[in-house]
Simulated scan of single mutants.
Amino acid sequence: MKKMVVLLGTIVLLTACSEASDDTSVISPKELNESEKRYLDIGTEYAYVYETSDFPDDLSTLNLDLHAYQGGEKSEERSRQLFGLKAEEGESLFPNEAEELVISLSAFEVNEEESESVSYYYDVSVLLGSEDGYTEYNGSVDVPKIESLASLADGDLRLENTSQNIFIYFEGSEVSSGVSSDQESLNHLINESELVYVFTLTWE
């Protein structure tokens, strides 16, 4: 018999109006109203909702990659691309009907009562939403057993760069959120933690 405990909740497709930003070089997640925030509070730690119209028209690719590190070294076995979107020649990156891009990551703990063992995995979801529904892309990532799990998140996409670390999970205590965009701080975290998972959104 399996018992599943949800640590970080699932995706909710949201329809809040975004708050205009003066800085056009940064794409920020949509501002949510109180009702929508309550939905996210039900077991959900991170879920970013973006307006597809905020992205540059000439954007040709959008990828979500996992970079895994163990003992300060990159694990090629666990690192991989989780999601990829590429524009066809002469076409825009997002389908015309797609209005929202939703990115979320959920973490689960599964207890095997017979063997008293515990396994962990992340469920990564990317959705393209429209008035008619959404197209969903899913990917699961297994996680080694760890004693403590901490996390960081940064949903602001800085267009002067070509990538953004949007989720970081690691074994240890909470640290400054600046590590998500500061490579030196991230390198320090990788060297000091036994396990680090970095989920990176890249674009061209």
Rank of each mutant, 00 (worst) to 15 (best):
Leu101Arg: 08
Val124Trp: 11
Leu105His: 03
Lys86Ser: 13
Ser104Trp: 02
Ala87Met: 04
Leu127Lys: 10
Gly90Leu: 10
Glu100His: 11
Leu93Ile: 11
Asp123Met: 09
Ser119Cys: 11
Tyr121Phe: 15
Pro95Lys: 00
Leu93Ser: 06
Glu89Gly: 08
Asn96Trp: 07
Asp123Asn: 11
Glu88Ala: 08
Glu99Ile: 05
Ser104Ala: 06
Glu112Trp: 01
Glu109Asp: 05
Asp123Cys: 12
Asn96Ala: 14
Gly90His: 08
Lys86Asp: 08
Ser106Cys: 12
Ser117Leu: 12
Glu97Gly: 04
Tyr121Thr: 09
Leu93Phe: 07
Val126Cys: 13
Phe94His: 05
Glu99Trp: 00
Glu116Thr: 00
Val102Tyr: 09
Val124Leu: 15
Ser125Thr: 14
Ser115Phe: 14
Val102Asn: 01
Ser119Phe: 13
Ser115Val: 12
Val124Asn: 15
Glu109Leu: 06
Tyr122Leu: 10
Val124Asp: 09
Glu99Tyr: 04
Asn96Lys: 14
Ala87Thr: 08
Ala98Val: 07
Glu91Lys: 15
Ile103Pro: 04
Ile103Ser: 01
Tyr120His: 09
Glu112Val: 07
Ala98Met: 02
Glu114Val: 09
Glu112Ala: 09
Asn96Ile: 10
Ser125Arg: 15
Tyr121Ser: 10
Val102Ser: 06
Lys86Phe: 06
Glu88Ser: 09
Ala87Gly: 06
Tyr122Asp: 10
Ile103Cys: 07
Glu116Trp: 01
Val102Trp: 04
Glu113Leu: 03
Leu127Glu: 13
Gly90Met: 09
Leu105Lys: 01
Tyr120Lys: 04
Glu116Asn: 03
Glu97Phe: 04
Glu114Tyr: 07
Glu109Phe: 05
Glu113Asn: 01
Val126Ser: 08
Phe94Trp: 07
Ala107Ile: 11
Ser92Gln: 10
Glu112Pro: 05
Val118Pro: 00
Ser117Phe: 10
Ala107Leu: 04
Leu93Trp: 00
Glu113Ser: 00
Ser106Leu: 02
Glu114Trp: 05
Asp123Glu: 08
Ser104Met: 03
Phe108Val: 08
Val102Phe: 11
Glu91Trp: 06
Leu93Thr: 03
Ile103Tyr: 07
Val124Lys: 10
Glu109Ala: 10
Val124His: 15
Val110Asn: 05
Glu97Asp: 10
Ile103Gln: 00
Tyr120Thr: 03
Ala107Cys: 13
Phe94Thr: 02
Pro95Trp: 02
Glu89Gln: 15
Leu127Tyr: 09
Asp123Val: 07
Ser125Cys: 13
Leu93His: 06
Gly90Val: 11
Ser117Gln: 11
Phe94Ile: 01
Ala87Gln: 02
Ser106Lys: 13
Leu127Thr: 09
Val118Glu: 01
Tyr120Leu: 12
Glu113Phe: 01
Glu114His: 13
Phe94Gln: 01
Ser117Pro: 02
Ser104Tyr: 01
Val118Tyr: 06
Ser125Lys: 13
Asn96Asp: 14
Asn111Lys: 15
Tyr122Thr: 05
Val126Asn: 09
Val110Tyr: 01
Leu127Asn: 11
Tyr122Arg: 09
Ser104Val: 01
Leu101Thr: 10
Val126Tyr: 08
Ser104Ile: 03
Ser119Ala: 09
Ser106Gln: 12
Val124Arg: 10
Val118Ser: 05
Glu109Lys: 12
Ser125Ala: 14
Ala98Leu: 00
Asp123Tyr: 04
Glu97Leu: 06
Ser125Ile: 11
Glu89Asn: 13
Ile103Lys: 02
Tyr121Asn: 15
